[in-house]
Amino acid sequence: MIRRFAFVIAVIALALGTGSPPALAHKMKIFASATGATILGYAYFNADSRAVQTKVSVRGADGSTVFTGVTDDKGQFAVQATRRMDHHISVIGDDGHMATFTVTAAELPDSLPPAGGAAPAPAAAVPAAAAATVVGSDDLRNFIDQSVSRQLRPLREQIDAYQEKIWLHDVIGGIGYIVGVAGLAFGFANRRRRPQVTEPS
């Protein structure tokens, strides 16, 4: 009995050992945020594996398709927003992986027309160099928006990564559930057999 128990412990330890980097998840995910009117994002599996050459489509809150394309060799994509509305991004891999992400209207600059508004003028991308010649208050506001979102981006990436991380307590909790379910099954199975057991043996 002790040997059997030791064997069980060894198998569980082995299972835990092989899964020792529990930070690694297997699931396609998207991260995206708006810098000015440009939505920059990337599709990834984990910290060191991006989803390259994967189909991306971006749908506006009004149902229009804003963008379709594939991610580049770093898993990245860039979309020019022309209206201030929620942008629903979805990435679909040929092998059935799928992920969705929403960039909310609040992230996009006020200068864009709202969804369903007048046909927008082609959004002029504000190059970083233009920041040097800040004149009007709109330009100043755009400049501040852009630099704040650039500063916030790594922080948001980190929060996103933390949310998606698989923690050791998830793994241990799962194993605990399995042990618990097995215990229940064992108990029920024995209860069903008890009348036979009480017969003289």
Binding site: P21, H26, S49, G93, V171, V179
Partner: peptide, 27 residues
């Protein structure tokens, strides 16, 4: 039943062992 539970736990944890292959990621 205990044996099935052990294999269930091994299967559960095995999916965390993964590596990138080409454009995808496998485990």
């Amino acid at each position: 039943i205990p044996q099935a539970a052990i294999l269930s736990a091994v299967f559960f944890v095995a999916s965390l062992v993964h590596f990138p292959v080409g454009p995808s990621s496998v485990h």
